[in-house]
Write a protein that binds this DNA or RNA. Sequence first.
DNA 1: CCAAAAGTGTTTCACGTACACCCATGC
DNA 2: GCATGGGTGTACGTGAAACACTTTTGG
Lengths: 229, 229
Amino acid sequence: MPYTYEYPRPALTVDCVVFGFDDEALKLLLIQRGIDPYKGSWALPGGFVRMDETTETAAMRELEEEAGVSDIYLEQLYTFSEPNRDPRDRIVSVAHYALVKLSDHRVTAATDAEDVGWFPADDPPPLAFDHAKILSIARDRLRAKVRYQPVGFELLPTKFTLRQLQHLYEVVLGRELDKRNFRKKVHSLGILKALDEYETGVSHRAAQFFKFDRAKYRQLEKKGFNFEI
Amino acid sequence: MPYTYEYPRPALTVDCVVFGFDDEALKLLLIQRGIDPYKGSWALPGGFVRMDETTETAAMRELEEEAGVSDIYLEQLYTFSEPNRDPRDRIVSVAHYALVKLSDHRVTAATDAEDVGWFPADDPPPLAFDHAKILSIARDRLRAKVRYQPVGFELLPTKFTLRQLQHLYEVVLGRELDKRNFRKKVHSLGILKALDEYETGVSHRAAQFFKFDRAKYRQLEKKGFNFEI
DNA sequence: CCAAAAGTGTTTCACGTACACCCATGC
DNA sequence: GCATGGGTGTACGTGAAACACTTTTGG
């Protein structure tokens, strides 16, 4: 125990709320804890912050280590500091939230985790610590953010149909959208590029695939927009 | 040095960006550091988080201790964790921002502070550590928040004129607003109560005083609104 | 030919924006 | 009486919202 300080210090951890989308529902990445406390419970991936990294770096590292997930969109959410949020010790946690393309990420359990998996973000299993509260705040943030930032796209595969995009917005916002108004709005933003490719093997008219216009997408990300649909 | 741990821990502090409004400009509360590092420099008020308090509690306590400011609106802003942001040690800081009625708060220097004062938020003196960056993020947040939350009111005295309210919005948003449209919008929100009181001693028609309808104000705070003016 | 989803325009209404004059008060 | 800011209404344009039918494909 070589680390000694004049005053007591809380331990500092990160937790990650990782959202994915599978064309049906919004999913949440959880790990099953392999150690106490809450051994066997499902929890948000996360861990201790090292002395040479920012919390964002720590969050990315933990996701890679615990779930094999890398190269994702991630940002800071909120810092949770209630003195008794962890039964062991005073632990302050900086929560982050992340968006991934589910199709690109096969998850694999690793250090400190017995298992890892995707669960419905609106109906997860009981969570360890105060993770249910963290999740709730992350859902609110995603719902708010989707209205003025094109973050929704982080959740879709590179090529996608307008139906997929609309369904994603419907799931995140929790209500149905009008097809014509949705398409009008999305096209008016000018961030989609139509591909010369269509769905195959569907028993109805094949939908066209789209991808993003990266330049315009970044531009819009910066100045924000108003998705009032 | 009685506090030892198995792994190294960053120190945890809070910093506070306190905004005030004096009918002219947006002001910022700063303390002059009485101890090294950056002794003599101006800095955001703040200090170490104790083991039995949340960061919000710590922020309130430090404001009371260092500047004699209490009973204010305060919320968490962002956590800064760059490993070299403090030259002494690895210090992670949870920044908060606060809004106060300038007229209600005479500030007084105290512990660890040589002096304390209000400075123009858009043109402060050179700041210690990474506090200029923290201030910049706080200003962005205030500008964004004022559009969908009635936070502006936290900055005004209990009784105020529509002119004062409009001027506050002009200062925060950084542009002039149309008087008639502003009044139409504010009245349509229904959160003001006209008082039977008027300015005195002014060499022009006396303006009417208003205060908030607390109930409707809280309601609107919860569900947000759209101040697109 | 039937089921299933793709794709496409127009009308209506709410709200943001621009804009000019009379009123009350102190000096 | 004049300088100063308080207080008021209307017309226009943009953008969100509501809404129905034809097209394509597989079985």
